[in-house]
Each structure stands twice: as structure tokens, then as C-alpha cells.
Write a protein that binds this DNA or RNA. Sequence first.
DNA 1: CATCAGGGCCCTG
DNA 2: CAGGGCCCTGAT
Length: 323
Amino acid sequence: MTAMKLRKYTTVTLRPTAPFNFDGTFHKPSHFEDGCSLWRHGSYWRAIRLGNRIFGIRIDDRGKLVRPKLNVTIFSNRKVSDKDADTIKKELIWRFGLDENLTEFDKLMKSDKRFYPVFKRWRGMRNADSEDLYGLLMISIVLQNATIKRTVQMMNALLEEYGTRVEFDNKAVWLIWLPKDMTDVSEEELRSLKVGYRAKFIKRLSQDFAEGKVDEYRLRGMDKESVKKELMKLYGVGPETARVLLSEIYHHHNTFEHIAPWQQKIYSMLFYNKKFVSAEKIKKDINRQYGEYAMLAVHYMMEDIFWRRKNEHIEWLEKEIRL
DNA sequence: CATCAGGGCCCTG
DNA sequence: CAGGGCCCTGAT
């Protein structure tokens, strides 16, 4: 583990496309806590890398649903140029989908008699993840075939060994290691952190990224099918991980093509109020109703139930999520 | 104490 | 294209 302390340099303004929902976009209760970001109502902290440099980012909600405005405070260990600030702005816009035009989805929500109240609650929320492609890949790998508790254990062990502890604004967050940091790490060393057979995935993915075989930025301009094809080539990436990356990193919303068993149980209750509906039926129904926005619609439903879980005990949900 | 499946994917036949 | 195997952990 390495540590670094950053101090405040500058503040820039971002104006997301309206409507925009701050808390829904910057906090995802359905995700496990990895310590890489912090959220309070109206505020968000995380560290990001641009090239070799590390920045601390604090984002504050300074607007309204229909007139969104974000203040971004940038922390660093040396001067932040206008160019740096601009690059950071652009990166945040991409990662959080701040320039997405969701007019069509908005219309779709309004015409949805059944779930309009749910959609209205989160109107303007983006399906986004603040990690870069490699970062979310690492997280996806430790999620595979594991319970949440074990996932958290593995992620903590990896971060404590290879991560960077970034301190700024009286907060501390983890930043995931770089692909090249794994070059000299053996599979045995990784296994000693109890990640099991995932050690092989982590090694090979890190090597491929370090060698520049994957270009996260190139994929940003590509259509969904092409991105999916590229992602599926990655060692350790199958249908479920590809779906996660496609929707959260690349903001493709028509990606409701794979339903994991645990999701199937939750969707059955959410959409049918039944214990078990076949994955094929769920897929067909949801894609027919929400079309190009099927994954985004499901994301809204999923996050909504996990937000509710923060305040109330939902018996059937507790049984379905294995912590 | 043993057995088993878990927020998948690879590999083999 | 179906199914076995994989690391480890906690639940049963």
C-alpha cells in the first residue's frame, strides 16, 4: 500500500444535461462498499488517475433537477493546469454520463403506468460507474462466484496490498492499482490474499492492459455489439461481466441480454410479484416494453429497491441477497 | 464434522 | 453446447 496526501487546488463547474439526479447517479446502494468512493447527500468524493497523475475529486450538487449544476473541487500534490482541469471535466462527463440525452427514456417513463412512481423518484439518474475499465474489471472479477462478504474480503486484501490510500478534504479513499503494478506479482502472491482461482484472471488481465492490448478510450466511440465483442475477448469476461461493463462503463442501455440467477429472483418479485419467473420471459417482457432502454429501466428498479432497503426491512429481498 | 453453493467463466468432449 | 471444475468461506 502506498499513501498520498493531496491539497485543494481549484474548483470547476459542470452542467449535466437535464433532468439530473445527483444522489441516484453518485451513489448506488446495490453495489458493495469498496472504499474507493464516499457519498453523502449532495456530495461525492473519489480519487481518479489521469495518466500517471492522481487527483482527489469532490463533487457537490449545486443545482436542481431541471437546472443541474455541479461544483467539482480538484485536489492534487502539484499545480493543476487549466488543461488538467479540462481533462478531468471531460473524464467525469464520460464516466457519469453527464451529457447523456435521456429525453426518449423520460417519455417512456411517463407512459409507464405501472412503474411511473419509481421512475419519477429517480428521474435524471444515470447508470454509471466511477471506475475506469480496468478498475471495474478488477471489481467484477472478485464478484464472480462469491458471496458479497467474500468479495469485500478479497477487494480489501488487494487494495491493502497494491492500492493507494488517497487523502484529501479530510477524507481518505482507496485507489485501485495500475495494471503494470501486477507485472512482478506472482500468481502465488495473489493466491495468498485468498482470491483463489481469480489470481489467474487478475494476472492475465493486468498483463493485457499493461501491454496496451485493450484501449478503453477507443471503445467509447463504438456501437454496442462491437464493444461487447471486444470485451468478451478479455480473459475472465463472460456474459455477465460484459453486461456490467457495457452498461456502467460504456452507457449502452440496450444490454438486457443476460440475467444471473440472483437477479432473476429479484426481478421476478419486482416486475411480477412472484417468486420465480423464467429468465427468458423476463428478458422478453422487459425488452419489449423498454426497448433501447431496457437495461436502464431495470437499473432504476433495482437501485430503487436497494435505496428502500436502507430504511426499511424488505423480507423477501433479505433472503435473496447473500451477504 | 462433512457437504455445498455462491452477484461466472474457462475448458473439454 | 452442456457440464465439470475452480478458491475459499460460511451456512446447514
